[in-house]
Simulated assay, not measured.
Amino acid sequence: MKQTPLTAKHRALGAKMVEYAGFEMPVQYTGLVEEHLTVRSHVGIFDLTHMGELELTGSGALATVNMLSCNDASQLQVGEIQYGCLTNERGGIIDDILIYRTEQGFLLVVNAANTAKDYAWIKQHLQPETQLVDRSAETTLIAIQGPKSAPLVEEVLSLSVSGLRNYTFMEPEYKGVKVLLSRTGYTGEDGFELYFPNTFAEELWDAFLNQGEKYGVKPIGLGARDTLRLEARMPLYGNDIDDETTPLEAGLGRFVKLDKEFIGREAIQKQKEEGLRRRLVAFTMIDKGIPRHGYPLLSLDGQELGAVTSGTHSPSLDHPIGMGYVQVESAQPGTEILVQIRKNQARAKIIKGRFLA
């Protein structure tokens, strides 16, 4: 099991450690609900070093990225970031990624469990004059998330983020070493992600915790990261999306640019023309019960519609919420459905938009 450069820090803070994507990671420190609400009201710090960073450079880098991603990376200027999906020939999602347009080329940030798979897929489809380097092992990634994240980042890094828009990044120096600082996150809050060499991991982690005391900062585990992203209706790879689901089915059509060539384009174009058979929806429970991954979703007359992909008791709403795929005829907001929770059937209602306003 791999460790991050911050594993000793997590243990010293009393974190409960678990295996995740081949890494020993903190699932919680003081408790999931407290950590979750800290990010919603103040600011939290996350160790995300398990994520993968793949660098593409050379004159063929743009052609490579655009052949692999369903989004259009040619629209990116240096300093801008784009969400996209790597899709297979069937239009299924190999991974959902962030694409950073750097001066040298592109940095692709990929999900931890998919780093080796993505690297192999990208290498297989490299266009001429393109170099691919896996920077994951040498890169620490921490996230600062929450309404107090901006003043904390400004204080620790001695800079202003007032001009840093969402999905853009800058590359300031910290003690003579370049840091990549992006206004991105996976919580639904304002926040930042920092990429930097492993040698500075403990020093920067401590700086954010120490200087963040006045902002109410706390370390946040993967448990709260999951409930935070679910409240924001952000999909989790392996749960809500995988290589058998397409971006259109997952509600990610705005990131699909069919006016350019990419692997999977024909399959997705055909699906768009013929119409979807299923769609990823969000729902809140009407009856008691927590929807869990894999629980069947039924129509009110007992017909199977699909299954729950993500579910939890929302700490912010103090109410059970979930996501899952249903037949498209039953996917309209306001539709009531049933969740099969063990031997019981509990009513739920499909909603539009995020769970949090």
Rank of each mutant, 00 (worst) to 15 (best):
T115M: 01
L132W: 03
F46M: 14
Q127V: 06
G84D: 01
E35D: 13
N114G: 10
T115L: 00
S74K: 14
L68F: 08
E55L: 06
R90C: 04
L86G: 03
M51L: 08
I94K: 13
I99F: 11
Q124E: 15
R90M: 09
G60H: 03
E89C: 04
Q82P: 00
R40S: 14
N88G: 05
V39N: 11
E80C: 03
Y83C: 11
Q77T: 01
N111L: 03
Q77V: 05
C85N: 09
I122K: 01
E53L: 01
G79V: 04
T38P: 00
Q75N: 14
L107W: 01
Q82G: 10
D95R: 02
T115S: 02
L56F: 01
I45Q: 09
A120M: 13
Q131W: 00
V110K: 07
I94R: 10
R135P: 11
C85G: 03
H125F: 01
T49P: 04
A113S: 15
D95F: 02
T115D: 08
E53W: 13
V133S: 00
S41E: 15
E55A: 12
V109M: 07
A120C: 13
E103I: 06
Q77E: 13
S74G: 15
E55V: 05
A116E: 15
E103Y: 00
Y119H: 14
L98Q: 13
L54Q: 08
V33H: 04
F46A: 01
V33D: 03
L98I: 08
H50M: 13
Y83V: 09
N71C: 13
N114I: 11
H50D: 00
L56R: 12
E53Y: 00
A120R: 15
S136V: 03
L98E: 13
V43M: 07
G44K: 05
V65G: 02
L107K: 12
V65F: 02
N88H: 00
M67C: 01
V43N: 07
Q77I: 10
Q124P: 11
L86D: 01
G52K: 04
H125R: 12
S136G: 05
L68Q: 11
D134S: 06
I94C: 03
C70D: 07
T115C: 14
Q127F: 05
G84T: 13
Y100N: 08
C70A: 15
V39A: 05
Y119I: 09
T57G: 06
E80G: 13
Q127L: 12
F46L: 15
A112R: 11
M51F: 02
I122C: 06
V43S: 09
G92C: 05
L132A: 04
F46V: 14
W121Q: 02
E35P: 12
V33E: 12
H50I: 06
I97W: 09
T64D: 12
K123V: 08
A116H: 13
N114H: 00
L107P: 03
S69Q: 15
V133K: 11
E80D: 12
R40I: 02
H125K: 12
Q77D: 14
A116Y: 02
M51W: 07
E55H: 13
L107V: 10
G79E: 08
A112Y: 04
E89N: 06
D118I: 08
S41C: 10
D118L: 02
A61V: 07
L108T: 01
Q75R: 14
V110P: 03
G92H: 11
G84C: 05
V133C: 02
R40N: 02
G60F: 07
